[in-house]
Write a protein that binds this DNA or RNA. Structure first.
Length: 113
DNA sequence: GAATTGACGTTCT
DNA sequence: AAGAACGCCAATT
């Protein structure tokens, strides 16, 4: 019980809750976990997300830039995945970012992890 | 074992 | 206002 889960698992849990056609930022997740200053850890945690069913392609930086696209198999794979969900991406940058932005602190505020 | 890097973001100058 | 530096914690070298 309790939230003794590792910080990484928390990130995975939140990332998995990202709805279809929506995106979030590392800082948003970190902030939701109470570590706004540790946004880096969120990104690092995603390194292990490959073996988990975590849609890392839905997580971008605070400007909507697909900074992690370099870690995907292909080069435009991340962008393709987002566009496939209806998210408009231009030059590896999410358009209408604040429109498709999904804030766990607001959407998941009802239930804490 | 110590130093550096890393899917970022905030804060100071 | 814009730019530079720092902080977080873990993993890699």
């Amino acid at each position: 019980m309790s939230n003794n889960d590792n910080f990484f698992e928390k990130v995975y849990t939140v990332a998995r809750q990202i709805p279809y056609g929506r995106v979030t930022s590392y800082g948003a997740i970190a902030k939701y976990l109470g570590a706004a200053r540790s946004a880096r850890m969120v990104g690092w945690a995603m390194n292990g997300s490959h073996n988990k069913d975590v849609p890392a392609h839905r997580v971008v930086n605070r400007v909507g830039l697909l900074t992690g696209k370099h870690h995907f198999d292909g080069t435009n794979l991340m962008q393709q995945l987002l566009e496939n969900e209806g998210v408009r991406v231009k030059d590896h940058q999410v358009q209408d970012f604040q429109k498709v932005f999904w804030d766990p602190a607001k959407e998941l505020a009802q239930d804490k992890i």
